[in-house]
């Protein structure tokens, strides 16, 4: 299995896009991969769009900026529209279908529609739509071992939010079951 991934995660600021990217990077790190995480930063992060590039590789990573992702996770329409054309042929696209109603028109990419925000609200996992999507990405892409993913969640959930660890793990499971 190829374990080289160039991912873009994009959505509104506040949806946990940067956090989800961080979890993926840490999961790769726990598996001994080379990893990098590069956020968009600046005034656009407050209420506007946020995105990050995550690279996992067997070799030292060149450019940390992902221009042509093989995995795209889109959590709002502007982000989806911005990045869909850039996905490499054969790439995988994960869409929060509670927030993005359209279908992917490209036929050379594989699309997965996850109503993550609705699922999060219905299952007492408010604010964890990002992690539900992450679970689905993990199932379809297998960017790390499951153990590494769990360790990454442990590592990334800050101490003051320790009570949310279980909810995060539950959200991962939910995403994986879809």
């Amino acid at each position: 299995m190829s374990k080289n991934f160039n991912m873009v995660l994009a959505g509104f600021g506040g949806q946990g896009i940067l956090f989800a990217g961080k979890v993926i990077a840490y999961a790769g790190l726990m598996d001994g991969q080379e990893v990098s995480w590069l956020p968009s930063y600046g005034p656009e992060m407050r209420g506007g769009t946020a995105n990050c590039s995550v690279c996992l590789s067997d070799e030292p990573i060149g450019s940390p900026q992902v221009l042509n992702p093989d995995v795209l996770i889109a959590m709002n329409l502007p982000s989806y529209e911005k990045f869909i054309k850039a996905v490499v042929p054969g790439g995988k696209v994960f869409i929060d279908s509670s927030l993005i109603s359209g279908k992917v028109e490209r036929e050379d990419v594989e699309a997965f529609y996850v109503p993550a925000t609705t699922l999060a609200e219905e299952n007492d996992l408010k604010g964890l739509a990002n992690i539900i999507l992450l679970g689905k990405v993990f199932k379809e892409v297998g960017f790390s071992s499951e153990e590494a993913l769990h360790k990454a969640i442990e590592k990334c959930v800050p101490a003051r939010k320790a009570h949310l660890k279980d909810a995060n793990l539950k959200a991962i499971q939910m995403g994986m079951s879809l």
């Binding site: 961080k22 080379e34 990098s36 995480w37 590069l38 956020p39």
Partner: peptide, 10 residues
Amino acid sequence: DGALGQMMEP
């Protein structure tokens, strides 16, 4: 530069 400052790596 801003990219190196903002990015995360091990």
